[in-house]
Design a protein around this nucleic acid. Structure first.
Lengths: 218, 218
DNA sequence: ATATATTTTTAGTCAAGTCTAAAAATTAAT
DNA sequence: ATTAATTTTTAGACTTGACTAAAAATATAT
């Protein structure tokens, strides 16, 4: 059995491994968890003892298969709870994260299986992130950052990279929600800002926004 | 803010105070929480600092109004989650306790308000125990132990005293569930066992059972 | 290739919550 | 009203997870 702290470390390493080929540095983990590298070293030794990570001094950390499974399961729980909060309890997508951070540590296989079923076996959370299955596998769909699309290309909005409540509330204000179709009307070379069409409305958005919105090309 | 451990102490004291007029002894708390009296002394000092209990050495502990409110809120969460598990996730009433013990510590006012609403503002949990309102008040209904009824009296089954899964499963097996009408057909002086009528079926039950079943007299 | 800068680890400390064993207070018994 | 039994508290130690400051290893720059 793993403690709340251990689960958070595994989850952090799991997320960091998604976009990093080498071993994860203790510093990177420390930053992600808002703690100190020395604390990470201690914990990583413990996790290594428990055979959920492989750790060589000064060489960074990688998850073992077991570690990956455990981390994916925490992520699965987190995302299922997010769906629950939005679909059943009328939370908005920018309110769910902190509560899901707590709920993801509840231990009960039956609970999560039944929740999954109750929600109709959702495949993605409210931010468009895929929900791992019971074995920890997640099918990733081909999605592109809006910023990478060319003029006149279009697609469906399927996810966000940054899921801070500030960004999500900004999207709400602009009427940009998952599932909507977006077409690039124009790209401005000067500042890489975009002119887009979304549901018959024309909108100008900055490059920063375009770099945090995922599109499934049509 | 209170830690998980602090909340569990407050809840234990809260439950113990329900059927005890004097201050609660550290020993009683220790037994309830399956810990040692010395640990309780330490914690009770801390809770006293935080003004949620009143503690005089060797004299036992009582909750302050603040302490009562906090404890009642934990109990409220516990019981709402139990309702959720049974009504929405198809748990049986003997499976919910351990999971609710975890869920009761999730911190989010919105979560619990929305859950309450989602469940239709239930007044009692699956074991017939009342759910405190947002202010910690609970309305107790007049209920009697089945063992206290006399021959030919009858009433509705409204709760259990012992909610161990063993006892609950026993009741399931016998077809005794909340809401059913029970009539005392006969009482046996020798062993205080009862002959009862429940939904046209005649049943013999021991005194031990009768002392753990609550009835609302008809 | 050596010096400098950065990253990572070690060593020692701390707080929360628990424990055991011993001491002190309270309660019960003669 | 002492003595004996029980309960409660204190004192000191342990574990988990974190921290700071110093040492060691690695990476960078001239």
């Amino acid at each position: 059995m793993f403690t709340l702290s251990e689960e958070n470390y595994l989850k952090a390493i799991y997320h960091l491994e998604l976009d990093a080929s080498k071993g994860i540095s203790t510093n990177a983990i420390a930053e992600k968890l808002d703690t100190k590298a020395s604390s990470v070293t201690d914990m990583v030794k413990k996790l290594s003892e428990k055979e959920v990570v492989i750790y060589k001094k000064y060489k960074g950390v990688t998850l073992t298969e077991l570690g990956k499974t455990i981390a994916a399961n925490v992520v699965r729980k987190h995302r299922l709870w997010e769906v629950f909060l939005v679909q059943k309890l009328n939370f908005s997508w920018d309110e769910v994260h902190d509560v899901a951070e707590q709920l993801e540590h509840i231990k009960s296989a039956k609970l999560i299986d039944q929740l999954d079923s109750f929600l109709g076996f959702p495949t993605h959370d409210p931010h468009g992130d895929p929900i791992p299955d019971r074995d920890g596998n997640l099918k990733t769909i081909e999605k592109s950052l809006l910023a990478t699309l060319s003029k006149n290309e279009s697609g469906i909005c399927v996810g966000v990279d940054d899921s801070s409540s500030e960004f999500l509330q900004f999207l709400d204000k602009k009427g940009i929600t998952l599932g909507k179709k977006i077409t690039i009307l124009d790209k401005e070379d000067f500042d890489d800002s975009l002119s887009i069409l979304i549901e018959d409305r024309k909108l100008n958005i900055s490059n920063k926004i375009a770099n945090n919105l995922y599109i499934k090309k049509a």
